[in-house]
C-alpha cells in the first residue's frame, strides 16, 4: 500500500465519518431532547427510529426547490455550498489517531500535519462566515439579512476571545501543530505523570468551549436563526437540500469543534495507562482512535445537553459576554500563563 493510496482512503474515511456523525447527531439531538423533556422522540422509522436521518435526508431531497425571483442566483447557491465546504475542510488537520504500522511502514492517521494546524482551523472557520453572509444577503429578505449580520458579528466577536484563549495553550506547548499538541499530552496517569492540557489551562478551555458554542450558532447563542424574532434567520428563504446543507453543516461544525476540543484540551487519542499495559503499537493506535471518538461523542452530547438546559440569550447580552466578559478573561489568562512560564524558566 503506497502512502498516496493510504491518504486517499483516509480522506474518504474522514469525509464519510463526518457525514455519518452529522447525520446521526440530528437523530441524537432529537432523542436527547426527548429524554430531557420526558418524551419518546423519533421511533417510527426502523428500530428505535434509527433510520430517521435517512428519512429526513430523503425528504429534504424530494422537496421542491424554491429560488426567490429577485435574488442573485449564483450567490444564492454559493452561500450554502461554501458553508458546507468549509465545514468539511477543517477535518484535514485533526489527528484522528497515532501511527499505524502496516508491513513495517508507519502510517499517520492524520491527513496532513501542517506546522500551523490550529491557525488553519481558525482560517477555515473564518471563511465559513461568508457562507452565512452571502446566503443571507442573496435571499433579499430583511429577516435573512438581519440573521446573516447577527451571525457574522457574533462569529467575529467570539473568534477574538477564542484565538486569545488558544494562545495561552500554544505558549505552554510551544507549537501550533495539532499533532504535537496531542503528543505533548501523551502518557497520562501511570508510569510518567503527564496530565491533559485541561488540568493546566482550565480557564482557557472554558473560554474556548463557550466560544465554540457561539461559533457553531448553537443554543444558547443561536440568535442568527432565532425563530421568535427572525422567522428562520439567515436560511428563511432556503428550501430543499440547500436548507439541508446549512443545517447539516452546522452539525459537522459541531463534530469538528468537539474533535478540536478533545484534541487540544483532553489529550486527543491519548488515554491513561497507554504505555503501561504492554500493548502493541497498532493496538494502542486503534484503542486511541476509539477513545478520541468517545471524547467527541461526549462533547456532542454536552452541546445538546446545554441546548435543552439554558434559554437563549438576548443579543446585547451575547455581545456583552463576548467583549466585556470573555475577552478580558482570556487576556488575563494569557498574562498569568506568560508569568508562570517566565518564572519556571528562571527557576
Amino acid at each position: 500500500m503506497t502512502l498516496l493510496l493510504f491518504k486517499v482512503l483516509l480522506i474518504l474515511a474522514v469525509f464519510a465519518i463526518s457525514l455519518f456523525m452529522a447525520a446521526y447527531s440530528t437523530y441524537a439531538e432529537r432523542k436527547v431532547a426527548a429524554f430531557m423533556q420526558d418524551r419518546l422522540g423519533p421511533d417510527r422509522a426502523g428500530p428505535f427510529g434509527l433510520l430517521q436521518p435517512l428519512a429526513d435526508g430523503l425528504k429534504l431531497f424530494m422537496k421542491e426547490e424554491i429560488t426567490p425571483e429577485v435574488s442573485n442566483k449564483f450567490l444564492f447557491v454559493l452561500g450554502p455550498s461554501l458553508f458546507m465546504i468549509t465545514a468539511l475542510m477543517t477535518g484535514v488537520v485533526i489527528p484522528w489517531g497515532n501511527l499505524l504500522n502496516i508491513d513495517g511502514i508507519n502510517y499517520s492517521l492524520q491527513i496532513t500535519d501542517i506546522n500551523i494546524g490550529i491557525l488553519y482551523v481558525f482560517g477555515v472557520v473564518s471563511i465559513g462566515v461568508y457562507g452565512i453572509m452571502i446566503g443571507g444577503w442573496a435571499s433579499n429578505n430583511k429577516f435573512s439579512l438581519l440573521g446573516a449580520i447577527r451571525a457574522s458579528a457574533q462569529m467575529i466577536s467570539y473568534e477574538v476571545a477564542m484565538g486569545l484563549s488558544i494562545i495561552a495553550l500554544v505558549m505552554m506547548t510551544g507549537t501550533l501543530s495539532l499533532k504535537e499538541i496531542c503528543e505533548y499530552q501523551a502518557g497520562g496517569v501511570g508510569g510518567n505523570w503527564n496530565f491533559w492540557n485541561v488540568v493546566y489551562q482550565p480557564l482557557s478551555f472554558l473560554i474556548f468551549m463557550i466560544c465554540a458554542f457561539a461559533e457553531c450558532n448553537r443554543a444558547p447563542f443561536d440568535l442568527p436563526e432565532c425563530e421568535t424574532e427572525l422567522v428562520g434567520g439567515y436560511h428563511t428563504e432556503f428550501s430543499s437540500m440547500k436548507l439541508g446543507l446549512y443545517l447539516f453543516a452546522e452539525y459537522i461544525n459541531m463534530f469538528i469543534s468537539s474533535a478540536t476540543m478533545a484534541t487540544l484540551f483532553f489529550g486527543g487519542y491519548n488515554f491513561p495507562f497507554m504505555h503501561d499495559l504492554g500493548l502493541s503499537q497498532n493496538a494502542i493506535t486503534i484503542i486511541g482512535t476509539g477513545v478520541l471518538f468517545g471524547k467527541i461523542i461526549f462533547f456532542i452530547f454536552f452541546f445538546m445537553w446545554i441546548r435543552w438546559t439554558i434559554p437563549r440569550f438576548r443579543y446585547d447580552q451575547l455581545m456583552n459576554l463576548g467583549w466585556k466578559g470573555l475577552l478580558p478573561l482570556a487576556i488575563g489568562n494569557l498574562l498569568i500563563t506568560g508569568l508562570f512560564i517566565l518564572l519556571n524558566n528562571r527557576g
Partner: peptide, 20 residues
C-alpha cells in the same frame, strides 16, 4: 494563515457587513 484570518476572515467581513 494570518493573512486569511485577518484580511479575508475579519476585515472583509466587516466591509461586507457595512455595505450590506
Amino acid at each position: 494563515a494570518v493573512h486569511v484570518i485577518v484580511y479575508a476572515g475579519a476585515i472583509m467581513v466587516l466591509f461586507l457587513y457595512v455595505i450590506m
